[in-house]
Design a protein around this nucleic acid. Structure first.
Lengths: 215, 215
DNA sequence: CCTTTCTTATGATCCGGGTCATAGGTGTAT
DNA sequence: ATACACCTATGACCCGGATCATAAGAAAGG
């Protein structure tokens, strides 16, 4: 289970709205309030709507029978989620949960397709989003399939650093994730992440400020 | 290195052409001859063209520094490849090699975008392809990150079985892959695949006919 | 304030799958 | 027929990360 800290700026650059509010309104999308911990859909559910976060944060994840979680991704304001199942025509392969209280746009598939048809630029942006997600998955897959924990975490941190907004002047960024969350993203155990992070500090691959990771 | 057996019917249903020849001709795409083993692009190359297999088979893969291969996918006639980098705007994260002699369509990005703009149905089909590829990656990622070899191979075989053309009447299909190739697809070692396949036979999860796997 | 619940942390143990060595089987090319 | 390159197969060994136990720090909520 995730620790409820604020993860709001993360995994994809902010202020990159796929679909603007005005278009949602034109196509009569619904803006739904979600409470913290609310499940939006579960593994196996059929995909009928397009979803985009307006406020808050959504996590997609799967649990294996032993209860271990693997995080597929975090989605922030302006970002859509669940499109693969919608456009690929299959049931959701994972769960979606609101990490915190917020608002989410829902647009039924037929209206969504019409919207794409009438807005080529958005359709192209959607392609871009899907492609970047494939890139992320390929990267993680490569790591998980053949590298040791140090390499895996290094790659994850590098990726995060590139996505996080950089404060001018400082060359290191603070990683806004707990070790448990990094474990869930890389398929490692929390103890392994803890030990590896310590080792990486000794090797000067990162700095620790209290428990916070500077990379 | 891959063993040059015929893998022609595999991983995605056949006869599903994304873009028909007539459209390629209309947009003045080039039909390029490729020889067996030819590299079409390599990790790090910028993505400038859209590719679709006309004849033969293309493999995308990465090699880690120790030389171990991880297969990202096989692409058969009618299937496109390399679109993520093209549409996501990043360099190729992996290599593409012709597994056998064949022909490949190449269409520069600007013309490709124009084609999509004028053909909404193809744009939607492209989305579907990308989404299914995401589905496959998520599946493999889930397996690799938290399951044992038996579970991983079972999932891979289940997936393959669903994609392979089924002969009516028979409930088992023959898996057209070597153990090395299955290892490259699941991130396992060939010895582990061999041992696990044998164990699965004892557990009646599959049948062996000589060395061929019936699932 | 205190309690709860999540965090980070560290040591001990264990075992599954990687690694290495060796060998026989199978298909293709010459 | 022979050679070669890749395949399947099996045993021995080992090590890295999972697992389990335990505990102290930090944050959230009443």
């Amino acid at each position: 289970m995730a620790y409820p800290i604020d993860l709001s700026n993360f995994l994809v650059k902010r202020n990159k709205k796929l679909i603007p509010i005005q278009l949602f309104e034109q196509f009569k999308a619904r803006l739904v309030n979600v409470r913290k911990g609310q499940i939006l859909f579960e593994e196996g559910d059929p995909a009928r709507d397009f979803y985009q976060v307006e406020e808050g944060q959504v996590k997609m994840y799967i649990l294996n029978p032993e209860g271990q979680e693997f995080t597929q991704g975090f989605f922030n304001p302006g970002e859509s989620f669940g499109e693969p199942a919608l456009l690929g025509g299959f049931n959701y392969p994972s769960n979606a949960m609101a990490v915190q209280k917020g608002k989410v746009w829902r647009l039924p598939k037929p209206e969504f397709l019409q919207l794409l048809k009438e807005n080529f630029d958005i359709h192209i942006k959607l392609n871009e989003v899907l492609c970047k997600r494939l890139q992320y998955k390929s990267m993680i897959l490569t790591e998980v399939s053949s590298y040791d924990p140090g390499h895996r975490l290094n790659t994850l941190l590098k990726y995060l650093k590139a996505k996080l907004p950089k404060k001018t002047g400082e060359e290191k960024v603070m990683i806004p994730f707990t070790r448990q969350q990094m474990a869930d993203m890389t398929g490692l155990r929390v103890e392994t992440v803890i030990r590896t992070i310590k080792k990486m500090e000794k090797e000067n691959k990162l700095k620790l400020q209290g428990h916070k990771i500077l990379f």
